[in-house]
Design a protein around this nucleic acid. Sequence first.
DNA 1: TCGTATTTATAGCCTTTGCTATATAGTGTA
DNA 2: TACACTATATAGCAAAGGCTATAAATACGA
Lengths: 142, 142
Amino acid sequence: MPDTPVEPQQQADRFSRARQMQSVALLEDYVEMIGDLLADLGEARVADIAERMGVAQPTATKAIARLKREGLATARPYRGVFLTEAGTALADRVRARHRMVVELLIAVGVPEDVAEMDAEGIEHHVSKRTLAAFEEFLKNRE
Amino acid sequence: MPDTPVEPQQQADRFSRARQMQSVALLEDYVEMIGDLLADLGEARVADIAERMGVAQPTATKAIARLKREGLATARPYRGVFLTEAGTALADRVRARHRMVVELLIAVGVPEDVAEMDAEGIEHHVSKRTLAAFEEFLKNRE
DNA sequence: TCGTATTTATAGCCTTTGCTATATAGTGTA
DNA sequence: TACACTATATAGCAAAGGCTATAAATACGA
């Protein structure tokens, strides 16, 4: 029965939740990016962050300000940006989830480059339970 | 080789693209919702749209204004909201994509209710090619 | 160490998506 | 037909994310 009627309230909640996740998505992207830069280059400069995020430098500065507000990052002016413990943990989770989404997409037949593209948007909406299902699926196929 | 180095520019483009898709997501949600209401109730009132979208009524009014601007909907004040041909076509595409995403999630082991939840956010980031892969996957399994 | 070049921060503006409070227009009934 | 009730529209505000232009701070070579 694909046509179970959906309660308006329930549906509204779903939309609210999706919007909520969206507001977290940017933080996740920045945190992961900063983690990557720290790993790759040993430091995360504002200019590099902006370049890789595809935004203007002041936009990155503002985003970093939000990360600081939320306790995910610290920054010494004109030095680099660093992740707090919470930031590092988030970055790790986000990175793992991203990889899992890409792998799942590839596993169901999505070309690798497309998988990589789409994952960038999809990943933020993948819940814990869905992630667990992905993991299980990848483990059990062959 | 999971560690193909990614060009900064390429990565930036991916993020830009994801942001771009995000701005379309709201339109898609509203259009699909209006389509559903028209089908279910024969009319789409602002109040119903707002309720089901989980937003305040003026927020829905504003979104509808954008739909009109973009040529997806028309509205007669104090009557209902209607979809243009383009709006109807978009609604159909969105609905089909939504169903496909839900089915794919279920097929890889995501519980139905979770699938329905997550699909709400995921669907907007599923490209044509990924959608095609999903379709193929669902057809070929068994 | 000075002075220029690079990098980051600030200022100021725009758009979108929310919100609440309030005005206004339709609807239906007495 | 008039009035109350309901539905929609409008006004005005906030936060987020984006931009360009410009100021300020740092770094580094001469």
